[in-house]
Design a binder for these strands. Structure first.
Lengths: 116, 116
DNA sequence: CCGGATCCCGTCTGATACTG
DNA sequence: CAGTATCAGACGGGATCCGG
């Protein structure tokens, strides 16, 4: 591989990684997406109990950001009382592969992570 | 797939994802790791120029955290003046696969990311 | 050259309480 | 049920100057 081609590719990929993190940074976003990967169409309170440790305030905020990034679709159901359901958009679903790799890495290296 | 097995697996994976993000959260960490993936043994100033937009303070801080998480190895070279080189540990290198998937996703979805 | 130390302000986040 | 409001402390991150 030539050095210039390498460096061009390198910078391009680093920018790509940074772009991706722009959307995924945030303490809970990846967890929320992971939860929605495992079961689509979840209500607010379901997500709240599935993401251990998150507060309703944070969940509300991060869901709003994910929605405005077009990763998540919010649907209000006219029930009594009102319920709201969240699901991944096709765009959001495209993250499934990345999330799975993250999960695998986290599983394989749990010991090292905790030890650190 | 049975529902209980599914849910057990689900929670386990969500925890794994959260664990992984514990180590990777931070505005620049993934970018730094990506940079080190593409060329091992880089000096502080090299990383500084390869990660666009980062300040020396942030680089210093995040490198320190990555080091204490055992993802990065720091080596002081007794040159004049002193130079310091950073490289990924084998543990850090195990993230290469994840980073590559992130880069691919970021490349494929650059338009959507920027549009949002 | 490789950072460390300090100042400083804005953002993030948890706890708690409240509303339609 | 699905959020919003408010307060207060923690944290992030830029600028700048300093030391080995």
């Amino acid at each position: 591989m030539e050095d210039n081609a390498f460096k061009r590719d390198c910078r391009k990929n680093i920018r790509a990684v940074h772009d991706a993190m722009d959307v995924l940074s945030g303490k809970w976003k990846v967890s929320i997406i992971a939860v929605l990967c495992y079961s689509s169409q979840q209500r607010f309170s379901e997500i709240l109990s599935n993401v251990e440790g998150i507060s309703n305030k944070m969940l509300s905020k991060e869901l709003k950001e994910l929605e405005s990034d077009k990763l998540v679709k919010r649907t209000v159901l006219s029930t009594q009382p009102v319920t709201v359901s969240y699901e991944l958009t096709p765009y959001g679903k495209s993250l499934k592969d990345v999330i799975m790799h993250l999960a695998r890495w986290g599983t394989e290296h749990r010991q090292e992570i905790i030890a650190g």
